[in-house]
């Protein structure tokens, strides 16, 4: 049981967000936004945090997942009824998994910067493929409000979009955190640690580095696909390629993970909360100027605290808390 203790703070934070949103008038959407950034950081961290490789095309997995849900909803609603949502999640998972394995099997053989460039290419390439060939509605995207209304009724579709989509996101975030904890506590966790420090030495010790990288890439990507399906398709009821392939989400994910503490359990969640709150606050206080202020602020934080918030906390609190704050 001891090994699950680090999971408690995660549950406490998401629980607080969820209840605050539920109980306080007008707080559901802001809390859901924070949960989105927490979840985004959490799933992105499974790859960046564990392997140290930066995937600049990560948003493609959220995008392909959102398409999975949209395709299921728009083409199957007459046959499946409300089953389109579970089917959509399965499809999102499968499509994101396939993409990750196809991309990973090739790109993960590249090192550092080459990997980063290759992944941008995949994400942008996929977007132009969809827009150029008219696949899945091309640049017009897929709008799923009608199928969802038909399957769930007006009331049902409404609560799906304003309540259930966000609630499912909390669930995905918890699952992502739990998987992270399991990996960190297992032998694979040591393998990842060794790879991050020195990939050559890790290989020499008999660690199958390609397999572990592919595993982390796959887990991170498939969970990302579920987020896209829930937080975008179910919540917004539409998918446009220019929105879902927006590189800003990838950059936000990188910032969140580095800000909170890469490779830690709690870091990406805390990073997501701080980032989300900061972005929201700047947009309200300095409307129009937020982007101008945001970049230098983030830069300062990352230069000043390279290990992230959780890294600093762990150092300050000493060994007694090391086992709890992961």
């Amino acid at each position: 049981m001891r090994q699950y203790i680090p999971f408690l703070p995660v549950v406490a934070i998401y629980g607080t967000l969820f209840l605050t949103g539920l109980l306080l008038e007008g707080m559901w959407q802001p809390m859901a936004l924070l949960a989105f950034y927490g979840a985004l950081g959490q799933v992105f961290n499974i790859f960046l945090g564990l392997t140290g490789y930066v995937d600049f095309g990560y948003v493609a997995f959220l995008a392909i997942g959102s398409y999975g849900m949209a395709i299921a909803a728009s083409s199957l609603y007459e046959d499946l009824g409300w089953w389109i949502v579970p089917t959509g999640f399965v499809l999102a998972f499968i499509m994101a998994s396939f993409l990750s394995i196809a991309v990973g099997a090739i790109a993960l053989r590249l090192k550092g910067a080459y990997f980063a460039i290759a992944t941008i290419g995949v994400s942008e390439g996929l977007r132009y493929l969809i827009e150029g060939t008219g696949l899945w509605g091309g640049s017009m995207g897929i709008i799923v409000s009608r199928p969802l209304r038909e399957a769930f009724g007006r009331e049902g579709a409404n609560s799906l979009s304003t309540f259930w989509a966000d609630s499912i996101l909390y669930g995905i975030a918890l699952v992502a955190a739990f998987i992270t904890l399991m990996i960190l506590k297992s032998r694979a966790g040591y393998a990842f640690l060794a790879m991050r420090e020195d990939e050559e030495a890790a290989r020499v010790m008999g660690i199958d580095t390609t397999r572990y990288k592919l595993l982390a890439f796959f887990i991170s990507a498939s969970l990302g696909g579920l987020i896209g399906a829930s937080a975008w398709t179910l919540k917004m009821n539409y998918v446009f390629p220019s929105d879902v392939f927006d590189i800003v989400y990838t950059i936000e994910a990188i910032i969140i993970v580095l800000l909170g503490g890469s490779g830690t359990l709690l870091g990406p969640l805390v990073g997501g909360l701080v980032y989300g709150a900061l972005k929201y606050w700047l947009a309200v206080t300095f409307p129009g100027l937020q982007l101008l202020l945001f970049a230098p602020l983030i830069l300062v934080i990352i230069v000043a605290f390279p290990q992230g918030i959780i890294g600093i906390l762990r150092e300050r609190m000493g060994s007694a808390f090391r086992g709890v704050i992961l």
Binding site: L193, D198, V204
Partner: peptide
């Protein structure tokens, strides 16, 4: 079979 590679590949942080 073991290989001790060129240069000192220790895990410096551990």
């Amino acid at each position: 079979i073991a290989l001790v590679p060129e240069g000192r590949h220790v895990f410096a942080g551990m």
